[in-house]
């Protein structure tokens, strides 16, 4: 709180800034990096210096050089180009999956907390059971049953991460639901939708977004793990996690091919969480 009050100058963007929201420097840095990667995700294809799958160097795990800004990978492909191309998959898939998983989880969690009773019990047990199915088995079954595509991948991830999000949101909402102001609102005869959007959500938004930030990180990292199920991004493209994984042999050689994708992942995930921690404060301040 103290930190956020130090800086109140707003950004000149049609963002919350002009609408009177307070937004501190850490949040701005986070947002800037996220926007940067979002732009790269869109234009990466055109700015990449080499085709993503082309072997440009007969040597492998090459060093940083004028031709290859981030070195070359295990096959001698340009890592810089591969990171630029990978941005689209990492940012896009992670954002899509995390939005679906958390939106679904949070909304269902709040509804379950407000309605309670049999609905809550059934939904909670169903999602517990869903979480009880090992995700490896789930992944393989999905590939076997419906094949693989980016859409399937996003949906699978959403299904895998929804129950956790639901459980956490529900635990928060249940607590808020017992507060006096909710009881009062309910006594006023407010509808469930009102209770959820106006009374519950503003009071759980902090932890729920923190949860979302973590889930975003997990999804970015788990993408590469799913590619061995055939669920991942198809070659020659690769998401950033896959870039780290396929070049992991370069770790002992200190190859830039393994360092730069890691930095890309870290810059994105840290920014997302930095941004979430420092959301424009008007949203966070329920009290005024």
């Amino acid at each position: 709180m103290t930190m956020t009050k130090q800086r109140t100058r707003s950004l000149r963007l049609p963002t919350p800034a002009n609408l009177g929201y307070r937004f501190n420097w850490a949040g701005r840095i986070g947002l800037t990096v996220i926007l940067f990667w979002a732009v790269i995700a869109v234009i990466g294809r055109w700015v990449a210096p080499y085709p993503v799958g082309e072997i440009v160097d007969f040597d492998y795990f090459g060093p940083v050089s004028g031709d290859y800004w981030m070195g070359t990978d295990y096959l001698g492909r340009d890592i810089f180009s591969r990171i630029l191309m990978g941005a689209r998959y990492t940012v896009g898939i992670a954002l899509g999956a995390v939005t679906l998983a958390c939106a679904g989880g949070i909304v269902l969690g709040m509804i379950a907390a407000v309605i309670g009773g049999l609905f809550d019990t059934c939904l909670s047990r169903f999602l517990d059971a869903l979480n009880g199915i090992p995700s490896l088995l789930f992944g393989i079954v999905v590939v076997a049953a419906v094949g693989t595509s980016i859409t399937v991948l996003i949906l699978t991830l959403a299904v895998i991460y929804l129950p956790g999000s639901y459980r956490f949101a529900r635990a928060l909402a249940v607590n808020v639901n017992t507060m006096d102001f909710v009881t009062v609102a309910r006594a006023r005869g407010e509808k469930t939708s009102y209770l959820i959007t106006r009374e519950i959500f503003p009071n759980i938004v902090g932890p729920v977004f923190a949860d979302l930030g973590l889930r975003f990180v997990f999804i970015v990292l788990v993408l590469s793990g799913l590619s061995f199920l055939g669920l991942g991004v198809q070659p020659p493209n690769a998401d950033w996690g896959a870039l780290v994984r396929e070049n992991i042999e370069g770790l002992s050689l200190g190859a830039p091919a393994v360092v730069f994708p890691c930095l890309a992942i870290a810059s994105l995930t840290i920014s997302v969480n930095l941004f979430i921690d420092n959301l424009p404060t008007k949203i966070r301040d329920r009290s005024d």
Binding site: V217, L221, V244, R245, V258, C262, T269
Partner: peptide, 10 residues
């Protein structure tokens, strides 16, 4: 966040 941002296998 830095800790969890690094892939576990790494």
């Amino acid at each position: 966040i830095s800790f969890i941002s690094v892939p576990e296998f790494m």
